[in-house]
Design a protein around this nucleic acid. Structure first.
Length: 189
DNA sequence: AGGAAGATCTACT
DNA sequence: GTAGATCTTCCTA
């Protein structure tokens, strides 16, 4: 299992968003493991992007975005938790939002956390996948490139075709094509 | 202290 | 397809 390192995330957020497709998101829960393939992402570009949370500047809420790459930025929205990963250099507050996963293991644990049975209801949205993996605000600022972390991303060989579109669910900055997803994947939101 | 907005989800038709 | 629930953060007074 090869864990993605700081060098992977310390790049332009658009490139990281594309390259994260097909990778495996892994959550350790004691001896148990929950994992899924990343099938949909969006990039948020900081100072030049009115849709980015860091657009307004450094606050208690956004400070992780201004730190080094490869850290978890958890943010709650409409009563859900959302997972971003920080990218680029210190003081370049850009990130990638993980929007959807294809569930791999362990399905019954995801079903339990989500209180849903159907496979398509488990991880087909940013708030849903956090719940399926039991990710909450305590993950804020966690280093995802540390192999002792309970959340990280690993290399994964898979064949896929990348599609792109405008971002979803925002009111500003819609003109940018910064959403990426795997073509014909059933778990794209 | 209060209100509005927001990177969403669910249940219902 | 659409309305209503939900809750944290930020802005204004």
């Amino acid at each position: 299992m090869i864990i993605l390192e700081n060098t992977f995330f310390n790049r332009d957020a658009t490139l990281v968003a594309k390259d994260l497709l097909g990778k495996l998101l892994v959550r350790k829960l004691g001896e148990r493991i929950i994992s899924g393939v990343i099938v949909e992402t969006e990039a948020y570009l900081g100072a030049n992007d009115p849709a980015a949370h860091s657009f307004i500047g450094k606050t208690e809420r956004t400070k992780v975005l201004f730190g080094p790459a490869g850290y978890a930025y958890i943010h709650s929205m409409h009563g859900q938790n959302l997972l971003d990963i920080t990218c680029s250099e210190i003081n370049d507050p850009v990130s990638v939002l993980i929007r959807a996963l294809e569930p791999i293991e362990v399905i019954d644990l995801m079903q339990k956390f989500r209180s849903k049975e159907k496979l398509k209801d488990l991880t087909t949205g940013p708030g849903k996948l956090c719940k399926a993996m039991d990710i909450d605000k305590s993950f804020y600022g966690l280093d995802l490139t540390n192999k002792d972390s309970t959340l990280f991303i690993v290399e994964n060989d898979s064949e896929y075709e990348v599609m792109e579109s405008e971002r979803i669910g925002i009111s500003k900055g819609k003109e940018h094509i910064l959403r990426f997803f795997i073509k014909r994947n059933k778990f794209v939101s």
